[in-house]
Amino acid sequence: RKEMTAACTPRRRIINLTSVLSLQEEINEQGHEVLREMLHNHSFVGCVNPQWALAQHQTKLYLLNTTKLSEELFYQILIYDFANFGVLRLSEPAPLFDLAMLALDSPESGWTEEDGPKEGLAEYIVEFLKKKAEMLADYFSLEIDEEGNLIGLPLLIDNYVPPLEGLPIFILRLATEVNWDEEKECFESLSKECAMFYSIRKQYISEESTLSGQQSEVPGSIPNSWKWTVEHIVYKALRSHILPPKHFTEDGNILQLANLPDLYKVFERC
Rank of each mutant, 00 (worst) to 15 (best):
V34G: 12
A7T: 09
L156P: 02
L260C: 09
Y264I: 07
A103M: 01
M38R: 11
Q56L: 02
K131M: 13
S191E: 02
F97K: 03
H42L: 11
S43D: 12
S189E: 03
S240W: 09
S240Q: 10
S206L: 08
S199Q: 04
K132W: 15
L121I: 01
V230H: 08
A7E: 11
S225I: 09
E185S: 04
Y139H: 04
D262W: 15
E217T: 06
L190S: 01
V87M: 04
M38Q: 09
A83V: 02
L190Y: 15
L96R: 00
I79P: 00
N253G: 12
Q58K: 13
P168N: 13
H40P: 15
M4C: 11
P95R: 04
E183N: 03
I125Q: 01
Q30C: 05
L142S: 01
F197H: 11
T66W: 00
V20H: 13
N149Y: 12
P95Y: 04
E123W: 15
Q215N: 10
K227S: 05
Y204I: 06
I27C: 10
D105Y: 15
E127G: 02
F140D: 01
H232T: 10
K192P: 00
A7Q: 13
L23F: 13
E217G: 08
Y62L: 14
F97Q: 02
S191T: 04
L156C: 09
Q56E: 04
I205E: 10
L260T: 06
Q56N: 06
Q256N: 07
H232V: 14
I169L: 08
N65L: 00
E268F: 14
G213T: 10
P163Q: 05
D98P: 03
G252C: 11
S191L: 02
L142R: 01
Y198E: 00
L142V: 04
E185K: 03
E134S: 03
I254W: 14
F187S: 02
G166I: 03
K192A: 12
D262Y: 14
N259W: 08
D251P: 06
E92V: 06
A237L: 14
Y124T: 02
L35C: 09
D262G: 10
E127Y: 15
Q203Y: 12
N49T: 06
P244D: 15
S91M: 10
I169A: 14
E37W: 15
L142P: 01
L190Q: 00
L121C: 01
T66Q: 01
N49R: 14
Y264W: 03
E37I: 12
K118T: 15
P219N: 04
E250F: 15
L190T: 03
A53W: 01
H241P: 14
V87T: 05
L17I: 03
L211Q: 05
S199C: 07
L23Q: 11
F82G: 07
N253K: 05
S221H: 09
K60C: 11
E119V: 09
E108R: 03
I200E: 03
S225M: 12
N259V: 04
N16W: 15
N84C: 13
C194F: 05
S191H: 02
N16I: 14
L88T: 07
M101H: 04
Q51A: 06
V45W: 01
E26Y: 13
E188Q: 05
I233Q: 09
D98Y: 13
E183Y: 07
K130N: 14
E143V: 11
G166Y: 13
L69D: 00
E123V: 12
V126W: 11
D158I: 05
W111T: 14
E143K: 03
F267D: 02
